[in-house]
Amino acid sequence: MIEIKNLTKCYGSFKAVDNVSITVPKGTIHGIIGENGVGKTTIIHCVTGVYKPNEGVVLIDGENVYDNPNVKARIGYVADSNSYFPTYRVKDMVNFYKGIYQGFDEDCFNELNTVFALPVDRRINQLSKGMQMRLALMLNIAIRPDVLVLDEPTSGLDAIAKKQVTDLLIKEVDERECTILISSHHLSELEKLCDDITMLQNGKVKYQSSVEGIKSKVKKLQAVFSSPVDLSDIEGILNVEQIGSIYHIITDNYTQAMERQLYSKGADILEEIGMSLEEIFIYSSKEQR
């Protein structure tokens, strides 16, 4: 289980992450989403023990992560870009991992390589971005981690590889009850994969819930008004788009009171339209801008 409690991380005077708390129960997948620069990678660096939090704690099964080799040995981390030794060959990296992680399972790596088909004699700097990402995934799954942290794991991968990675992650959770924390911009993938989602804004948590929970909170309403109306005085409206007499209203506070207000402003028809996670993300970001 991952417990991030009141995490704050500053770079100088800039507060990159501000009082964020996330709990990821064992055997679940948690996604972190947000615009560039909202603190996703900073949180991940705190979870993997690269950064020391300014305030708050990051615990894995109740133990602090920072500078704790025993805990870090149980965490697999796939970074968003290659950070391995560029002159090493793939097989050298396998040996490196074997020498660092006692639980490294070479058979597992070889088995994964029958699917991902990486040339083991090739140097890291000769691998494409997608190949490097596959290598990172294979190495980190082969250490048989209790916690897997992934930063943009599908970037640079083709559609087939993306599917393979998604299947692999689901298998890890199903078979070994691995706990997974993912940061990604591919929201349609996260929507299918994650149990829970945290949406960040300016280093703070904006929404945190199950995927269905967020979807039930943020709603898109289609309303038809016979004459133009001003909806700015209604609380909880994130965004309004007007096409003729049809208004598309995005709200994160759809209540009966709001419904009454809309009807009182002359709405003839009012209906809910389903939204994807990606749409929710876009409208929430628009609101902030």
């Binding site: 870090k72 970074a79 030794f85």
Partner: peptide, 14 residues
């Protein structure tokens, strides 16, 4: 550098 992030994530006491 980037490799430093990789080294810092390894289970080795700083």
């Amino acid at each position: 550098k980037k490799t430093g992030v990789f080294i810092k994530q390894l289970p080795v006491k700083y």
